[in-house]
Amino acid sequence: MLRPHLFCILVLSGIVSATGISASGAAEPNDPSKDPWPGLVQDIFSNRPMSDGSDVIAIEMPYRAEDAAIVPVTLRSKLAPDDSRRLKAITLVIDQNPAPMAAKFEIGSDTRVSEISTRVRVNSYTDVHAVAELSDGTLHVVKTYVKASGGCSAPAAKNAEEARNHIGQMKYRQFARADQGPSNGAREAQVMIGHPNNSGLQMDQITHLYTPAFFVDELHLWQDNSPVLSMEGGISISEDPNIRFTYVANGAKTFRAEARDTSGHVFQKEWKVDDSGS
């Protein structure tokens, strides 16, 4: 993950322009001969071997995004029910973004998370890769292509004062109530965090200075004390991070979340499992 101070150094040194952003801030068409993926495999995955993941994981994104600052993405397990392997982690890489590793999701060993959805910034036309690590240590990759531009430099939806008042507010929603099935059955839930998630590329329209990178870089979720899902995030996760996922309930009475941002703030909240969290 790219820390805020390092990211600012990269911007000032001009490396961002090599990822498809012109001096004017407009996205330029990517040069197919300069495919960044081989270098990303080395930088992010230490050149570990990867297999075709079409029978392991699916990635779903719109081919042409309506809003480059909030592009929906869904990662879905395709492992057969009788497969002895399980998903251990999923890494989402937006190849042409200034900081390509958008998020790494670590999956609790007993929760069988099978689907994760969130919203991301896409800065220029790009391949997007999802790399699944299985419990046997193997890596499996799939990709899709997205037409979008300017997502990392798009102005925040909220003004600065509203964003400050919103920081750290967390909501939880569940989509299968306790009285609609067994307490240890499959469930779908959503955790939302109020945070500007500044990318470091957004310019203040009054001062013409760049707003420093400031984003949620850690999120941990538990049912009682059993880990469900963890996320290591970067600048590509959209404003007000929103994570929706499916998991298998273990009969826990509470659901708990803890988030940290790059300024060291810690946000915590706990909900009853049958509470809508609204």
Score class of each variant (00 low, 15 high):
Ala27Leu: 12
Ala27Ser: 09
Ala27Lys: 02
Glu28Val: 14
Glu28Cys: 12
Pro29Trp: 07
Pro29Val: 02
Pro29Ser: 10
Asp31Gly: 03
Asp31Asn: 03
Pro32Thr: 07
Pro32Trp: 05
Ser33Ala: 13
Ser33Ile: 08
Ser33Phe: 12
Ser33Trp: 03
Ser33Tyr: 02
Ser33Leu: 15
Ser33Asp: 01
Ser33His: 03
Lys34Asp: 13
Asp35Ala: 09
Asp35Asn: 08
Pro36Cys: 01
Pro36Tyr: 05
Pro36Val: 15
Trp37Lys: 14
Trp37Ile: 05
Trp37Leu: 01
Trp37Pro: 04
Pro38Phe: 00
Pro38His: 09
Gly39Asn: 08
Leu40Ile: 14
Leu40Phe: 00
Leu40Lys: 01
Leu40Gln: 04
Val41Thr: 09
Val41Gln: 05
Gln42Lys: 09
Gln42His: 14
Asp43Arg: 14
Asp43Cys: 13
Ile44Leu: 07
Ile44Tyr: 04
Ile44Ala: 03
Phe45Glu: 00
Phe45Met: 00
Phe45Lys: 01
Ser46Glu: 07
Ser46His: 05
Ser46Phe: 15
Ser46Asp: 09
Ser46Val: 12
Ser46Asn: 05
Ser46Met: 14
Asn47Met: 11
Arg48Val: 03
Pro49Arg: 12
Pro49Ser: 11
Met50Asp: 06
Met50Cys: 06
Ser51Cys: 10
Ser51Asp: 12
Asp52Val: 02
Asp52Met: 02
Gly53Tyr: 01
Gly53Glu: 00
Ser54Asn: 13
Ser54Asp: 10
Ser54His: 14
Ser54Gly: 09
Ser54Met: 01
Ser54Val: 10
Asp55Tyr: 11
Ile57Gly: 07
Ala58Met: 15
Ala58Pro: 11
Ala58Arg: 05
Ala58Asp: 13
Ala58Trp: 02
Ile59Lys: 11
Ile59Phe: 08
Ile59Leu: 13
Glu60Arg: 13
Glu60Asn: 14
Met61Asp: 15
Met61Ile: 11
Met61Gly: 08
Met61Glu: 15
